[in-house]
Simulated assay, not measured.
Amino acid sequence: MNETALTSDLFTPYRLGSLTLENRLVMAPMTRTRAADDGTATPLMATYYAQRSTAGLIVAEASTPNAVGKTYPNTTGIHTDAHVAGWRQVVEAVKSAGGAPMFLQIQHGGRVGHPDNSGLTPVAPSPIPLPDTIHTPTGPKEAVVPREMTLEDIRTTIGDFAAAARRAIDAGFDGVEVHGANGYLLHQFLAPNTNRRTDDYGGSVAGRMRFVVEVVEAVAQAIGPDRVGLRISPGNTVNGIDGADADVLYPQLAGTLADHGLAYLHIVFADPGRPLFERIRTIWPGTLIANPTLPQDQIPADGGKNAAEKLLTAGADLIALGRPFLANPDLVERLRTGAPVNPVRDGLMYQGGPDGYIDYPALPALTAAGA
């Protein structure tokens, strides 16, 4: 065993509310499009998550709180009894493997959706279409102009998030992560180029934050704040988002929610050398999960361990890794021992089926094969 692994905080237990995590490595939520057509989690998904059950915490992939929030084909939902039953088999599989606590990410796509996927016209803070195509069952199609949400739509959607959180707990999850990042509905409310509203949910930073804050508060009231995390991606421009005022908005958002007793704040593409990360760490009193920026086309030779260590040194409490966990079901042991990591097979990420999903080899299999 690599001697430096023995002294790394990555592999020490961590107390997250009432949960004890065996290590500080979090499996980040990653859409894999392996759900049934109606958004129900499948037995194949149960195998996938159980394989990765040595993570300290698993945040399961984005699930929509209602039908109109669906993004792409074969993404998961958490708004029907079938969805609860499907996710329950996933949670039970992870528990049977002696595995990690699990949170479920709840995501509404907003304008990142298409009638061919949901059967409905997407909704958004303002009627501004996504400047890109949307994947549908028949291939990429131009995004449609979303319908601007009314105040009643906003109230209903907030209620849908709360109901989805209760369903997640019914399915056996330990908590939920509200997805406020990566250009989806909550992020669309935060960004000035996608939120042109002139009512109380637009305009100023406080106005654009209001929907996010009210969603988080409703979810916390539904299941308890210590079971709720929030994911953000300051400055991230994916899905046509303008992050120009990130340095003002995100410290204010963190400060507004700092006394709510949430389980954690999760920062995507966290940069320990950026002053904004330090400001948020100073403002946020609780657990901070940081997701480092890693190359999109490959996994670093060390599996992301160096980037993870830098974020811990900069003040993060837990480190979320995506693609390294995707390609390495036993990532924790590989990082602990300095073993080589599997590369990602990009072409198989979203195509469905077991290939590129549950067939990544673990260390014993590699050893047996003479690797």
Score class of each variant (00 low, 15 high):
D242K: 08
R274C: 11
A362S: 14
A220E: 04
A164H: 05
V341H: 08
G315R: 08
Y250R: 12
T80V: 06
P140K: 12
Q221W: 08
P122A: 12
L321T: 01
Y201R: 04
M102I: 02
P146S: 12
A222H: 02
A164M: 04
F11P: 01
R167I: 03
V145F: 06
V176N: 06
T75H: 10
I267C: 04
S233T: 03
A365R: 13
R210A: 05
P361Y: 07
Y48N: 07
M149N: 07
G110E: 00
P29V: 01
P361G: 07
I134P: 00
P343M: 06
Y201K: 04
G303C: 05
K70F: 01
T4A: 14
L190S: 06
R323C: 02
W87G: 00
A222Y: 02
Y49P: 00
D259F: 02
D132W: 15
G224D: 09
D199Y: 14
A168T: 04
W87N: 04
N182A: 13
A258Q: 11
T194R: 07
P225T: 07
I223Y: 14
P13T: 08
V26R: 10
G322D: 05
R15Y: 14
L276P: 05
L230A: 11
L16M: 13
D302P: 00
F189E: 02
